[in-house]
Nucleic acid binder design. Sequence first.
DNA 1: ACCCAGGGTGACG
DNA 2: CGTCACCATGGG
Length: 288
Amino acid sequence: MIYATFHKGRALLTGERISPALVFNCGQAFRFDPFADGYLGVACGRVLFTRETNAGLELSPVTPGEYATVWAHYFDAALDYPVLEAEFARDPLLASALPCCRGMRLLNQPLFETLISFIISANNNVSRIKGIINKLCLLAGRPLSFCGLTLYDFPSPAALASLSEEQLTACGCGYRAKYIQKTARMVADGFPLESLVQMDYAAAREVLMKFPGVGSKVADCVLLFACGKKDAFPEDVWIHRVLCTQYGFCAKNHAQLREFVLRRFGAYGGIAQQYLFHCARTHKSVVK
DNA sequence: ACCCAGGGTGACG
DNA sequence: CGTCACCATGGG
């Protein structure tokens, strides 16, 4: 259980450990970077500075109202991670991944931003993904000020849709420029993205995969990181190697993967995936 | 020069 | 349903 207290424009979260370094560097979010003794970034249209202290996780600038309406959900405060991890620990292989994931947490991120970000992620690496997104924000995002600095919000669907393919290519989008433009236009033209949250996993996935540049893996990332579908299990090259080498299961298609994952990890398989993914990526030799 | 990165698309069997 | 060439881009 997470408890929030407030003092002088800051929120202090206690009860469950949340590590900004882990949360913002595990490949789920691309807009937070080290700043001073914490991490600074933009999410949900606001600048946020986070800092891990002995007392807990500090968030600023945050009012009690903003925490209640925005950040509690963003940091997935309703889900008890220690309880979940205790459940995970019953799986010996997953248990061995827990130590390198202390303070891990899945964020509930804005839908449009997540959709575009993971279209960009296709056949790409994290540092380049961050660079591309940063340029898009600089070009078409609303400016936000913080301590004399100017940061930029992620572009609205309309703002992103208004960019030319040349502008998108100039940001480093490469062959994904067309996908981004088409997807942004579909959303700007009124596609009800938020309706995905109410749909079940299979239905929402089917809808998402109709967007250009969204295939099996990107759809699962959006479902897990922005639609609250904790059973979505994105399978990239890393997690494929983990399942294959450690679990002796090499999925041949999505149906088979889903069956295995549900049986092995249950309704929170997507979170298990994130733990295994992060552990594999930080100890490359284990699986490579 | 080659390989890889949180893959998707389209063509073809 | 499965495979496979191709797709920009930058860093190792």
